[in-house]
Every structure is written in structure tokens, then in C-alpha cells.
């Protein structure tokens, strides 16, 4: 894997000729595992009850909530039919109780995880998610939250030079 072709390196604007290239190469294993985690979170072979189009929409939503234009565009590039509406931060799921619960949980855990309580897990169950889907959703929100911060940090490092 070329680490300069990974989503993180590209979103942070770091190429093989950048001053930070050698620093990033020093943690090339982490960059590769980050890319593999992206695939596992966004395009798993066994998506369970959380489809690929929903995952792309939710990841894009988390990128927007973090104000990250670069990763927002990346996730938009993965959209399939149905993703767009989910990524709209003004949309709360409408009349679809399952989607509404998923969106509510995503917004809460992405922006203010300290407020997540046992009742929030019960709410997902009541909306029809099984425990495996609750873990899948949690991993998706958590991975994107990690990826966004790695990119944000690398961009600041590049500014310092």
C-alpha cells in the first residue's frame, strides 16, 4: 500500500514530496491499518443491518459535524442512492423510526460522547437494531471520529512545516 494514496494522507494534503513525508513514513504501518479500518467500517463484506449506503451517509454526516470539508467530499464520493439524505444534518430521519434512532445516536456520539447513556442503547434496541448492529454503528462513528482528528492534526503539522 502507498501510504500517500491513503484517504488520511490525501485529505491532509501530504504527498511523498512533502516535508512531513518521512515522519508519516515512520508510522506507515499505522497509516495502512487506518486505511484498512476505513474499509472495514465503510465497506464491510458483512454489513449486517447497516448498509453501505447508510454508512457513507452517516460518515459524511460526522465529517460535516466536525466541520471537515475535505473528508465530507471524500464521503460524498462514496454515496449511493439514499446516502445524501442521511448526510443532511438538517434531516432527522423523518418518519422512519429506525433511521431516526440511528441518526440521533450518530449526532450524539460524534459531537458529545460524554452524554451517551444506557438509555441511548435501549433506544437503538427499541428501534429494531440488534446488539451486533449497535456495535457496527458504534465502530463506524468512532472510527470516523478518529480519522477526522488524525487528519486535523496532520494539517496543523503541515502548517508548522
Amino acid at each position: 500500500m502507498d501510504i500517500f494514496e491513503t484517504i488520511v494522507a490525501k485529505a491532509a494534503g501530504i504527498s511523498s514530496t512533502s516535508p512531513l513525508a518521512s515522519v508519516l513514513t515512520g508510522r506507515g504501518d499505522i497509516m495502512e491499518l487506518t486505511e484498512r479500518s476505513h474499509e472495514a467500517s465503510l465497506r464491510p463484506k458483512q454489513p449486517g443491518g447497516l448498509t453501505h449506503f447508510e454508512r457513507a451517509g452517516l460518515a459524511c454526516r460526522v465529517a460535516k459535524l466536525n466541520g471537515d470539508a475535505g473528508l465530507t467530499r471524500h464521503y460524498e464520493s462514496m454515496f449511493q442512492e439514499g446516502s445524501q439524505a442521511i448526510a443532511d444534518t438538517g434531516f432527522d430521519g423523518g418518519g422512519d423510526a429506525r433511521l431516526k434512532a440511528i441518526i440521533r445516536h450518530t449526532d450524539l456520539v460524534a459531537t458529545d460522547p460524554k452524554e451517551a447513556a444506557a438509555s441511548d442503547i435501549s433506544a437503538l434496541r427499541s428501534a429494531g437494531l440488534d446488539d451486533a448492529d449497535i456495535v457496527r454503528l458504534s465502530q463506524l462513528i468512532a472510527f470516523v471520529s478518529y480519522q477526522i482528528r488524525v487528519v486535523a492534526g496532520l494539517r496543523l503539522m503541515a502548517e508548522v512545516g
Binding site: V109, P113, D120, I121, S138, A142, F143, S145
Partner: peptide, 11 residues
């Protein structure tokens, strides 16, 4: 830990 906390504290 932005990742880990969103698993450990939420689940």
C-alpha cells in the same frame, strides 16, 4: 482515544 472512548463509554 476519540475512537476508544466512543466504544468504551457508549457500550
Amino acid at each position: 482515544f476519540g475512537w476508544a472512548n466512543r466504544l468504551m463509554h457508549v457500550l
